[in-house]
Design a protein around this nucleic acid. Structure first.
Lengths: 228, 228
DNA sequence: CTTAATTGTTCTCAGAATGTTCACAAGTGG
DNA sequence: CCACTTGTGAACATTCTGAGAACAATTAAG
């Protein structure tokens, strides 16, 4: 149904939409596919549209919409966005071939440790029941500190985080502060500012300018281990 | 589907409606987006309307309505009638060879529900990362109630329990009281009696004769799911 | 009813960002 | 060889964003 390049582009658009909610521009798609001209992207977009995988508004910037998803290899079939999702080709089992209902996600280190997440190399891999997660890309962090203790999140727990830059008020997010420090906190917006609320009366809410905070994911699950 | 600014505005409108129920005015949206002119807002609103994300009444003040949310899920996650359906049900029992580091344990139902655990047939199976558990036989229970909230165990969490009748003071155990009721509590012994301590100041510790209590297992792990 | 305040609408100017199209070249498979 | 896809480069067209101001519509107050 789709050529290699078309499929690659469709998958890029999907994840971009899932994670940021903002359509990529032709320029961005060009870079993502490692092309040097936008016209190639234009042809691929036209092909995808012709085949009914995406919809678009002509002459409008960043106005793409995915109608049929390319199947996420290895991931849970995304029930997510569109109700008229038609699961597409199921690629032959992704390389690591985990059990059907288990997803393997990278463990990126500890959070609230003063280090941006991206900087950490991931070595450990944590298998997680698929039922615990929704669609999308996830990763795990070990929680450090007791700032979220009243939300039932304890020191040493493993937070399962869905990678996204989108979050609603009141959700627990991984927030990167001034590109330096990653924390797990309740997110709340107040007239242009962003407030990070801990769940511990001993800590104070912190207020930042919107451009000081980058949301890197939202809390999707939690694992805890009691060692006896 | 949306440009950065369109997305930003849509999200602002959403949270404003969620939190106050009142549409923002153009002036307020202008400030929220850090603009100095309302005309920009007007164009963004038109774009959002054209793309079907909002609806509005022309020439009416604060008459916005969000049709499609900016969120990834987009759709208003179907209310899904039964709130206490265990989402782990897996029809095919055809053991699909779990990955090496995954253990499959039975899900026995809810605890603190007034029913002895043994009585429940187990249908659902929960795959769990082996790293979370030690040696021994394990099973899972869905936690009901808030009596262990101060131990970071919330209603709806899944407790991973190691089957054993031996437990030390201070450990969290599944205790069967008079053969009738199973509860998750801190175990403590006091001169021949057994005390079950909740982790919630609103509940009282309960004291029983030693032969009224049977330990059915000790808490070995915890899973939680956040649905967004 | 008149006035004032609030709010929404439209227009113009300008630069940046983005999408569209065409011509040409190269690779692939039947 | 042909049909088709892919890649490149550049010119071109349109949209997007931001600002400022004038004006219209609606609402609240006197």
């Amino acid at each position: 149904m789709l050529t290699r390049k078309q499929h690659e582009l469709l998958r890029f658009i999907q994840t971009r939409l899932d994670e940021t909610g903002i359509s990529p521009s032709f320029e961005e798609m060009k870079d993502a596919l490692d092309l040097k001209s936008k016209s190639g992207v234009h042809r691929l977009i036209s092909a995808l549209e012709e085949r009914g995988f995406i919809r678009r508004l002509p002459n409008r910037a960043r106005a793409l919409e995915v109608l049929r998803r390319a199947d996420e290899g290895g991931q849970t079939t995304a029930p997510a966005a569109n109700s008229n999702v038609v699961p597409f080709a199921r690629p032959e089992a992704a390389a690591p071939a985990p059990a059907a209902d288990v997803i393997e996600i990278p463990l990126h280190g500890r959070i609230a440790a003063g280090v941006p997440i991206e900087a950490l190399e991931d070595q450990a891999i944590l298998p997680v029941p698929a039922a615990l997660l929704g669609a999308g890309e996830h990763y795990a962090l070990e929680v450090s500190g007791d700032s979220m203790i009243e939300a039932g999140i304890l020191d040493g727990d493993f937070a399962l985080v869905k990678r996204t830059e989108i979050a609603n008020d009141g959700e627990i997010v991984v927030a990167l502060v001034r590109g330096e420090e990653a924390t797990l906190k309740y997110l709340r917006r107040e007239n242009g500012m962003i407030r990070l609320d801990p769940a511990n009366a001993a800590y104070e809410p912190q207020i930042y300018a919107a451009d000081e905070i980058k949301v890197q994911g939202k809390l999707a699950g939690l694992l805890r281990r009691y060692f006896h």
